[in-house]
Nucleic acid binder design. Structure first.
Length: 567
RNA sequence: CGGGAUGUAGCGCAGCUUGGUAGCGCGUCUGGUUCGGGACCAGAAGGCCGCAGGUUCGAAUCCUGUCAUCCCGACCA
């Protein structure tokens, strides 16, 4: 492609609307333009990157027995009513009606659709297992779309669905997809990590997420220094271990005045005790039943774990007024002593001695609280967020934490949709059984943004070779110099003959402008033909992520480029 | 949904307090001089000042409403 014909409107300044680096650079480098909040057009360079990502996915999915299909974006309300998600999905689903006042959803996902398709035409175990996938736009009316392509309302996703005869079939399909995903992300040349993930409302089933590692990631991952344990903090299990101060002598319980000290931090300072010796007491409603939830003051309750332990559908934190009604005190003074509510406590609370907690009286806290001696009965469970420095649940070594961008998730759905939508088949013995499903997603457009979040410098994007929009750019320093131009064209055409995707920057611009643009759009290899090196029949070769420029004889430069691309 | 901020040329911004019919830098176009990391000179095009009402002889500027965009929050007392 000649740069003079390529539509890549680069900007010299950072558009004021962009905050995160991928958003800024994709706008500046002329990859995307915004249509509305969370909705973007992909310009030629972006679409080339997306196609590369999609093709890698296709190749690997097809290799693993997947078959690509395309389902409608517009989906009738009735379909979603069958699964109950017309209500459940809530405001996040885009809805529309036609001229006859029939309602439709813009597909946020396709479980209902795929299950319907498969159940209508597969009636025998002979048709199973089946793995179908599509790459398509998804629509989710996010509360707050943000970070450019990272959290859009319209985005491109690969979604795959598997149908199996039994749990064993699903298990082997799941393993295959796990390996497939590892191959896909390895081919993107991104630093990533597969982590254990929470399975959400479905419960009990297995799920893994694929995280591209980047500081700006919205997810926190904990991983073990010694073994291969890695999990999203939402999911990571806390080890059930005793604290170092668990063998103290029990001191007498006392009530202390703590006027206007509401937060853990304030109470900690005021009473001069460490935050990890304060019991944090929260009042929740589990499906409208009040419960008290405890954890150490320096810890955070993990609501996903809590929800799973309590077994409730909905979990909401009470407001201050409700706390006063039920416990007779405001936030900051709540505590678990003499409370007539179910109490759920994090495992660590079991080991806390001579601790501090609210007295259920405004402005007062109890000190030297010892759970067995002083507090009501409570149910212990792993309820907190694991943090860096905690012990690995597998091997007891230290856990570290790192941030990641979730670009893929694989999931054992089980019977959820096959039961709701009655997707049955006859097994080899003539019994009617439900199909067992799995689903497997990859955020395609988010992967492009994540690649930028992970690979950039002050000059612009640094695309990994496998997903770069073009592999090489040939820059004649001065297009009016015939010798330079002819040499550049020659090299460019040789690259094309070898199937290398190249740009010839034939624009009548100063060299600096071309260098700046080449860096900004992030082309991995740059070949410069200028007067200096041309004298000795050489051209300059620069790799985007390296500092040095090497001089290569013109006769051998195309071979050299080919070699680099093949390694 | 709550809080904050911003909408003026393709991009970045000034002007608004104190109303008088719009400006700067970059980019774009023409001509010329240049030519190895975002050149210089001269000239030019480009704006219903987000939209709708209102006040006024007169509104980018004041008032009301509305829409859009961005940030923070919407859970840890």
């Amino acid at each position: 492609m000649k740069a003079s014909q390529l539509f890549f409107p680069t900007l010299r300044e950072v558009p004021s609307e962009a905050e995160v680096i991928s958003h800024q650079l994709l706008l500046r480098a002329g990859f995307i333009r915004k249509a509305s909040g969370g909705v973007y057009s992909y310009l030629p360079l972006a679409y080339r990157v997306l196609k590369k990502i999609m093709n890698i996915i296709r190749e690997e999915m097809d290799n693993s027995g997947g078959q690509e299909i395309m389902m409608p974006i517009i989906q009738p309300k009735e379909l979603w009513e069958q699964s109950g998600r017309w209500e459940l999905y809530g405001d996040e689903m885009f809805r529309l009606s036609d001229r006859h006042d029939r309602f439709f959803a813009l597909g946020p996902t396709h479980e209902e659709m795929i299950t319907t398709i498969v159940k209508n035409d597969i009636h025998s175990y002979r048709g199973l297992p089946l793995l179908l996938y599509q790459i398509q736009n998804k629509y989710r009316d996010e509360i707050r779309p943000r970070f450019g392509l990272m959290r859009g309302r319209e985005f491109i996703m690969k979604d795959a669905y598997s149908f199996d005869i039994d749990g064993g079939g699903l298990e082997s399909m799941y393993q295959v997809m796990m390996q497939t995903y590892n191959r896909i992300f390895a081919r993107f040349k991104l630093k990533f990590r597969m982590v254990e993930a929470d399975s959400g409302a479905i419960g009990g089933n297995e799920s893994h997420e694929f995280m591209v590692l980047a500081e700006s990631g919205e997810n926190e991952i904990v991983y073990c220094s010694a073994c291969d344990y890695a999990a999203n903090v939402e999911k990571a299990e806390a080890a059930d271990i005793a604290l170092e101060f668990c063998n103290e002598e029990e001191l007498p319980l006392e009530k202390m005045s703590t006027p206007n000290k509401r937060t853990i931090e304030e109470v900690s300072k005021f009473l001069n005790v460490k935050e990890n010796r304060i019991i944090k007491s929260l009042l929740y409603f589990a499906d409208s039943n009040p419960i008290m939830v405890l954890c150490r003051g320096d810890r955070d309750i993990n609501e996903i774990k809590l929800k799973n332990v309590v077994g409730s559908k909905e979990l909401t934190l009470a407001d201050d007024g409700t706390a006063n009604q039920i416990l007779g005190a405001s936030f900051g003074s709540l505590g678990p002593k003499d409370v007539n509510l179910p109490i759920y406590a994090d495992l660590e609370v079991k080991y806390m001695q001579n601790a501090v907690c609210g007295a259920n009286e405004n402005g007062y806290h109890l000190i030297n609280v010892n759970q067995k001696r002083d507090l009501s009965d409570m149910f212990f469970a792993d309820l907190r967020n694991v943090a860096a420095g905690d012990q690995c649940p597998n091997c007891s070594q230290n856990l570290f934490s790192i941030r990641g961008i979730e670009v893929g998730q694989i999931f054992k759905l089980g019977l959820k949709y096959s039961e709701a939508l009655d997707a049955n088949f006859l097994d080899s013995e003539g019994n009617t059984r439900h199909m067992i499903m799995g689903c497997y997603g990859i955020g395609v457009s988010r992967t492009m943004a994540a690649a930028v979040e992970q690979n950039y410098d002050d000059d612009g994007i640094i695309w990994p070779l496998s997903i770069a929009p073009y592999q090489a750019i040939v820059i004649p320093v001065n297009v009016k110099n015939e010798e330079q131009m002819q040499t550049a064209v020659l090299i460019y055409e040789e690259l094309l003959v070898l199937g290398i995707e190249a740009i010839l920057d034939d624009r009548d611009e100063r060299a600096g402008v071309k260098f700046k643009d080449a860096d900004l759009i992030g082309i991995p290899l740059r070949i410069t033909i200028g007067p200096k090196s041309l004298q000795s029949n050489q051209a300059e070769l620069k790799v985007r992520w390296e500092k040095e420029i090497s001089l290569v004889p013109i006769a051998g430069i195309v071979e050299k480029v080919k070699t680099i691309l093949e390694t």
